[in-house]
Amino acid sequence: MKFMSVSENKGENTAEGRVYELGYLLAPTIKEEEVPAVYGNLKELILSLGGEVISDEMPRMMSLAYTMVKVVTNVRNKFNTAYFGWVKFYMKPEKVLELKAKLDLDPEFVRFLITKTVKENTIAAKRFVRDDMSHRKAPAAKKDKDAGPAPEINKEEIDKEIDAMVAV
């Protein structure tokens, strides 16, 4: 029943509109110094459409999991790297379509994804990874304990074997 509240949050409609998230990839052809400018323009675009930024992350260079292709002015461009960034914002549903239409025409964006989300921070803290690590190690530790008494038995067997060898 815990999860019911989440689905209610997803459909959250306030005066400012709904919570959306825009994840995007900027073309690697943009120079490092010019990235903040592009990022600033994007924020302005959101504000101009009556949006309100909740949280965001600066675009940073990353290698893509696969090669992406985008045709800009009849030229097929291949990308193996891109600047990945995201913005979370409030916006009215009808304005989001306008935002999408504008981004579609922008040659600086390799790809983008607009999703409905919740206003809370959705990236889990790192401790979850650690919890899982300890969980994974636990069975291995048990094995060691099981292995503890085993050598003693082996020693006796070895002694017997040695005696047998000596006897021969």
Partner: peptide, 22 residues
């Protein structure tokens, strides 16, 4: 359920480290 155990209510596509486990 990994997400209930760790109290993750919204599964985020950006959280690649968690997604990789699956």
């Amino acid at each position: 359920d990994y997400f209930s155990v760790n109290n993750i209510k919204y599964i985020d596509y950006k959280d690649v480290e968690i997604l990789k486990k699956f």
